[in-house]
Design a protein around this nucleic acid. Sequence first.
DNA 1: CTAGGGTTAG
Length: 716
Amino acid sequence: MAAKLSAVLDVHHCNISYPSDKNQPPHFTSPLRISTKKFTIFCTSSKSPPKTAPGKAESRKRKTPSLSEQLKPLSNTILSDRPNESHQLLSKPKSVWVNPTKPKPSVLSLQRQKRSSYSYNPQIRDLKHFAKKLNDCDPADDAAFQAILEEIPHPPNRDNALLVLNSLRSWQKTLLFFNWIKTLNLFPLETIFYNVTMKSLRFGRQFQHVENLANEMIENGVELDNITYSTIITCAKRCNLFDKAVQWFERMYKTGLMPDEVTYSAVLDVYAKLRKVEEVMSLYERGRASGWKPDPIAFAVLGKVFGEAGDYDGIRYVLEEMKSLGVQPNLVVYNTLLEAMGKAGKPGLARSLFEEMLDSGITPNEKTLTALIRIYGKARWAKDALELWDRMRLNGWPVDFILYNSLLSMCADLGLEEEAERLFEDMKGSESRKPDSWSYTAMLNIYGSGGNADKAMRMFEEMSEKGVELNVMGCTCLIQCLGRAKRIDDLVQVFESSVNGGIKPDDRLCGCLLSVVSYCEGEDVNKVLACLHKANQNLVAFIKSLEEEDTKFENVKQEFKGILSNTAVDARRPFCNCLIDIFRNRNLRERAHELLYLGTMYGLYPGLHTRTEEEWRLNVRSLSVGAAHTALEEWMQTLTKLVQRREALPEVLSASTGAGSHKYSQGLANAFASHAEKLAAPFKLREDKAGGLFVATREDVISWVQSRAASLASIA
DNA sequence: CTAGGGTTAG
């Protein structure tokens, strides 16, 4: 979709044609055009805005540039070339207008469209009853519907028809009723009739019907107003037809209608859905420059955009902007920003924002609490998570099914087995919140990561008894657990029944099988490999070829590259880690070194080795035990060469293993310590520092290398 | 869903 929209922006909409409409007012005189000029003040270089490409000259001749044309110079000259400056620029919107004598160009109407008020309809009871009959009739039976229509209790005049139209539920019936009114031809169908019908169609995600009605309005000379356009735009958005949404927005300007803030923020959200941060900001800035004081909904859209980009500066910008405009965030804005904080990896700031929200007198809802619980779980902030859970109960804050499941997942993240069991039992006892596949997955995750294979298997059996389907994540948790318990026959059985039950193994499941291969022995290896073969043939073929002594490095490289490029980004490093472990455990260390080399080359271990003048550090926190051993050996070899060549070393050499924040983490620090001991390497754990840091001085390393060289020499 | 815009789960 994103590609589609950018294509639309690039071709400047030359190919869009609308039905002729004669009754349109004259085009607006370029509400946005001035901005091209205006924005040159933001350019630090003295260059003028980029020239339009020759092929696009024609579209420039139009009286009113399309929105995309107007956006383009902006994003070319300012935003996309200097992404880091954008916030700095955006934080000073008031500086945009250098010449106060010129009127501000307007991109939106500061006045919201007025709605006509309904007058009381004395026939309301009869007509509601009639509408109910229409709603209740068999949707497949058109004849029955027609028959009921004939029995309308009062004449279908304007007000009566409107009332019924508003009361129909399904889009099919709304459309049938609308067409019936049209054929009766008792009064002209005004805009509101189209708007009400479109709203119903939008509910049914029927964009084609909506667009047909819009074109009919144009043909019949019925005015399209802001309500029409915002309904069309949001309908296109819900149907993921973003290019259509933009087309209709641009049509407003072309026909001389100015969007109000509702239509405008609907379009902001279109660009937000496309993750076009620059376009969102440029629209926002233009709106601001037109004197718009955005309301909380517009800020919620901005917050979402930055959250999805994980852009903390952007989130802060939204908060500051609201503050400086005196806009008080509402519940939805807080929810959006909290979630954004989570995506930007700022649990502490999420926590303080939540407190700020409470201080301002807003009561959290299910979404607020789901977001926070999830953030604390992912951050492994057990204390805050449990505290929040207590407060939820104490204050009687609202809870729903998703929140229950999120609490279970949080327990899985934190290894809170008892709490999860209690909650799970609660859910079973309730009528409305029976555990579903999400709930069972969380339980499988808890038992799986806790190594409790019996309880995990009991969950698995219970699921099939209750008819709750296992999903791929639950399957992965279970297989991981059975693998660790060395219950390989059970593992095979679970895998096969899952695949037969329709689960499509994903890369995470393959990674899980691969890790089981790395630590099991004998015939078990082949059993697991047979499962893996069903999920990913290439991976098994790759392992087989690495086992062959005469497979050349160049072939390893090509095959591994092929494997990685077919693997989800998140699963690439785990794959490489497991493969290294597999070959270390089989005493094929050379293969392990090759794989680590290739993994580093393909960017799976960024920052594996970092250097400053004083310190060189090996960062193995994202490595498996075998990969960490391999990396340490590799590093020692390198250091040995450097010492022998009498090259300069920094004062401090260190290795960082990470503390292993997960309750069940394998203890990379311990494994590393024992390996260093085996090599008699002089790395000592710094007890005073958190996060598993092993440190050696330059002198220790030099003397260690020399003594090793001496002992090797004496053996020779 | 009483004509229009924004927020919940591996």
